[in-house]
Write a protein that binds this DNA or RNA. Structure first.
Length: 894
DNA sequence: CCCGCACTCT
DNA sequence: CATGAGAGTGCGGGT
């Protein structure tokens, strides 16, 4: 029978190696560093698989001074502390090991080395085979006939292992493992600050020990050393050599560490391990350890009542009228491309009472709304929900005027951390309550083709969703207290929450489209595309798929032999920038650019928009998403109305099809002039920039005048356009390289522009520096209204990631504050239109502009409301200027 | 079904 | 050492 095995791991050493082995600082989505733990677990897991040891332990150093410090105060004196990013991972790693039931060993006054030494000696005595795992070659001295060493080295996330056993040591070094202390006694160790004998390096030391076996023998035979210098060094530092040996000698007889049976491997605690892996976002480990099916410790014990009839609805309603609050989780099912149906509602008047209303089986939706219209419209009954915008849109369609919005957990979670991909109830429960709740998204199936809820077993759905109101209630309280902590209450309660209703109304109201004109436009485009396609085929001498960059690349760079300007990961780059550079080398290039432009217009805009016109309303009802961007902007989908062409005339024409609801209405387009630069002037408090705005100057002209050091009257159009590029670039944290490319100037000139700019606006320069420092220190940056964005990238050791973080730190407060401001304006404008019972409606926001469909008679009043709402949304050190244009279609509002 | 590319906007 | 922030859509091509 082969021997049983014990594996002893030097926790500090391996974690250290792991940390430095993975170049990117892996973090969880809320910024906990995990790269060291991640690699550590990979290494450990691999070794456990390889060796399958019966016993295992991980040893750690403790902070307290060791017996070595007592012997020699210089010991490890020049050792730097761990970087903060690594230090925070130590307790987490220990938590992981505890969850995995892997024994941790640590003892005051000793280092992990000593623990390895002592445990291995005990294990040897008990007849076990020992595998030591460490990144430190000092442990060579512990190798013995039944003790081996694994020395992992990680680079770029890849781990290689060197293995040493007794024979290999003898073979490679020509000495026995236990003689390494004597080598170190002579050679010393700079990293531990062990002095050794100055002037003797590893090679000499090794040769000496090889010849003399040990220190005693060497010093007894000093006379036989021929080299005078060497002999004198040895003589002079004899005492230091012996002290060094003591320091280098790993303790193998630590007291009370010898109960090997305690180190016996046992099953991991699946729940705890699952919990911490989830917390650290180690999805791959959850798979690797087969933990996907773990049912979690914390579940909600709740008796969810399934409503069966109208009288039960009535008693639920009465309870809500009593509590004056209600938590609602709504499930809206897509029943067709333009139709949806309320599938179910989970609802609870108090935290421990939950109802499930199933509108596909038990409850009649009309009956429910008859009974609950009052409740839903009563502003004094507080509504807590999740993603309520969609519910409000649904209610709008049913003629119900939702009021009393008190909390939306999706929005709340977004304010706490806007960088997450998704905000599902299940994730929120885990993150904020450490509670595991099944995800309804998993039941519905992935992707856009929604599985109809009616095809699912109703009890699965009711059990899953039934507890959601309870979760909403708890999470809302938790998030509320975090909002207080972060000083984000105003942002949440005065801006984001009211905005939910504003966006819902915008979606509901929609943007009217002239369908016939759009169809006609599409046809015109197709005709043009046909012509250009033929021309391209002729010029290429063959037919190919022009839409395929791959095929196009072959034609341009292989068949036609055009020079390769730029490559992508997958092949030749054929983007507009490249094509423009090639445009005078071959006729085909211009045609390709024209083709691309036409095809984009036809597919994305003409056909894309036709596909999303609601046949019942003749309007486009885009979704405005409030929890997508990391900066606080809103986004628009299905379709995206925030990227309708405007720059090129051919594309701009598409705006003609966007029209008011009928002939009694007009479109108003109100846009902020230079909002981001005004915000920049305000935030940086830069006198020069503030004055430019106060004097109502053209900012690009005045920047040009400043940078070129000439009077404004002498600024040429070229100078102004260059200044404009710098103004924009500065906001994004541009570098000289990109600016040079932008302006087709030399890098040196670009650098001079940027430097000149920063000299002229010294507070901008200071801000750009300070905000990065602040972000690094706090871990996040904030906007004027305390919107927060976490930036773990700032601490990355990877230059690219870190630089990205720095640019984001500079840009987010600017872009985000502008987003805050226009959101305030939206809420004000929407509220005012409603309060005055006007027929005009806010229908669209495009980051710095608001589009209102105004009843013709109300035009002047609405213009005032827009100006007031937008210009006075916030008081800055510079004025906010708004320009309003009107037209009978969107094209005309220019 | 997902990724990369290309293009659209502020 | 690589190189300007934030988004969404449609297509091709590989799985």
């Amino acid at each position: 029978m082969s021997k049983q095995k014990l594996m002893a791991i030097d926790g500090n050493s391996i974690l250290n190696r792991a940390f430095y082995g993975l170049p990117e600082l892996l973090t969880t989505s809320d910024g906990i560093y995990t790269n060291g733990i991640y690699v550590f677990l990979n290494i450990m897991h691999k070794f456990i698989e390889e060796e399958n040891p019966e016993y295992i332990c991980v040893a750690f150093d403790l902070k307290a001074p060791t017996f070595r410090h007592n012997k020699y105060e210089g010991y490890k004196a020049n050792r730097k502390g761990m970087p903060e990013e690594l230090r925070v991972q130590v307790p987490l790693l220990k938590e992981v090991l505890d969850a995995m039931n892997i024994k941790r060993l640590e003892m005051e006054g000793f280092e992990a080395d000593d623990i390895l030494g002592s445990v291995s000696l005990c294990a040897e005595k008990k007849g076990l085979e020992v595998i030591l795992v460490t990144g430190d070659r000092d442990a060579f001295q512990l190798i013995g006939p039944s003790t081996r060493l694994k020395l992992p080295r990680t680079r770029g996330g890849k781990t290689e292992v060197e293995e040493y056993d007794y024979n290999k040591i003898v073979e490679v070094y020509g000495i026995k493992p236990e003689q390494f202390v004597d080598v170190k006694a002579l050679a010393g160790d700079t990293s531990d600050n062990i002095p050794g004998v100055p002037g003797i390096g590893e090679k000499t030391a090794l040769a000496l020990i090889k010849e003399y076996n040990n220190l005693e023998n060497l010093y007894n035979s000093l006379d036989s050393i021929k080299k005078k210098g060497l002999r004198e060094k040895l003589e002079t530092f004899k005492e230091q050599a012996f002290l060094s040996r003591e320091l280098a000698l790993i303790e193998r007889n630590m007291p009370s560490l010898c109960d090997i049976e305690e180190l016996k491997r046992v099953e991991i605690d699946r729940e705890k391990t699952y919990e911490i892996f989830k917390r650290l976002e180690f999805r791959s480990f959850i798979d690797k350890f087969g933990l996907n099916d773990v049912q979690i410790q914390n579940t909600v014990e709740l008796n969810v009542k399934i409503a069966k009839n109208a009288s039960e609805l009535e008693s639920l309603k009465n309870n809500i009228l009593k509590s004056r609050k209600v938590c609602i989780y709504h499930l809206i099912d897509k029943t067709g491309s333009f139709s949806q149906k309320l599938a179910a509602i989970a609802i609870s008047p108090v935290e421990d009472e939950a109802w499930y209303l199933d509108f596909t089986n038990n409850i009649d939706e009309d009956e429910f709304f008859r009974q609950f219209k009052d409740v839903l419209e009563d502003g004094n009954i507080k509504k807590y929900g999740h993603d309520l915008k969609n519910f409000i849109v649904y209610l709008n369609n049913r003629g119900i005027d939702f009021n009393g919005l008190a909390f939306d957990t999706m929005i709340g979670a977004y304010i706490i951390n806007p960088s997450k991909e998704t905000y599902t109830i299940s994730e929120l429960a885990q993150e904020y309550l450490n509670l595991s709740v099944k995800a309804v998204e998993e039941l519905a199936g992935k992707g856009k083709s929604f599985t109809l809820f009616k095809d699912m077993q109703p009890d699965v759905l009711s059990k899953t969703v039934g507890v959601y109101p309870h979760v909403i209630s708890k999470v809302s309280r938790k998030i509320d207290s975090l909002l207080k902590e972060n000083n984000q209450e105003r942002l949440y309660y005065d801006i984001e929450l009211p905005l939910v209703r504003t966006l819902a109304d915008m979606e509901y109201y929609g943007f009217k489209v002239n369908v016939d004109a759009l169809v006609e436009f599409s046809k015109e485009l197709q005709e043009k595309i046909d012509v250009v396609t033929k021309e391209i085929y002729t010029l290429a001498g063959e037919e190919f798929n022009i839409n395929s960059p791959k095929q196009l690349g072959v034609i341009l760079f292989e068949k036609l032999g055009l020079p390769i300007i730029k490559k992508t990961k997958t092949g030749y780059s054929t983007d507009a920038e490249v094509l423009e550079e090639l445009s005078d080398r071959h006729e085909i290039v211009e045609k390709i650019l024209e083709y691309r432009q036409l095809v984009k217009l036809k597919s994305t805009y003409a056909e894309g928009l036709l596909a999303v016109i609601n046949p019942y309303t003749g309007k486009i009802h885009s979704s405005f998403n409030q929890t997508v961007t990391a900066t606080g902007r809103i986004s628009s989908t299905e379709p995206n109305l925030q990227n309708i062409p405007i720059k090129l005339e051919m594309g701009r024409k598409i705006r003609k099809v966007f029209i008011p609801s009928d002939e009694n209405y007009l479109l108003l387009d109100a846009d902020y002039s230079q909002i981001e630069l005004r915000v920049l002037a305000h935030i940086t408090n830069d006198e020069n920039m503030i004055n430019a705005f106060l004097n109502n100057e053209d900012i690009h002209t005045s920047t040009a005048a400043s940078v070129f050091g000439i009077p404004k009257e002498e600024v040429t159009p070229l100078m102004r356009s260059r200044a404009k590029a710098v103004n924009f670039g500065i906001v994004y944290g541009i570098g000289d390289f990109s600016l040079a490319k932008d302006l087709k100037i030399s890098r040196k000139e670009a650098r001079a522009y940027i430097d000149g700019y920063l000299d002229r606006y010294p507070n901008v320069k200071k801000y750009m520096h300070d905000i990065v420092e602040e972000g690094k220190e706090k871990g996040f940056v904030t906007t004027m209204f305390m919107r927060r964005r976490y930036l773990p990238e700032l601490k990355s050791r990877n230059f690219n990631i870190r630089s990205f973080g720095e640019r984001v730190a500079m840009n987010t407060p600017i872009q985000g504050s502008a987003a805050d401001i226009i959101k305030i304006a939206m809420v004000k404008v929407h509220g005012e239109l409603k309060k005055r019972k006007l027929k005009s409606r806010l229908i669209l926001q495009v980051h710095d502009e608001l589009i209102v469909e105004t009843f013709k008679d109300e035009k002047e009043e609405v213009e005032k409301i827009l100006l007031e709402g937008m210009q006075n949304a916030v008081s800055l050190k510079v004025p906010l200027v708004v320009e309003i244009k009107s037209g009978s279609n969107w094209y005309e509002t220019k």
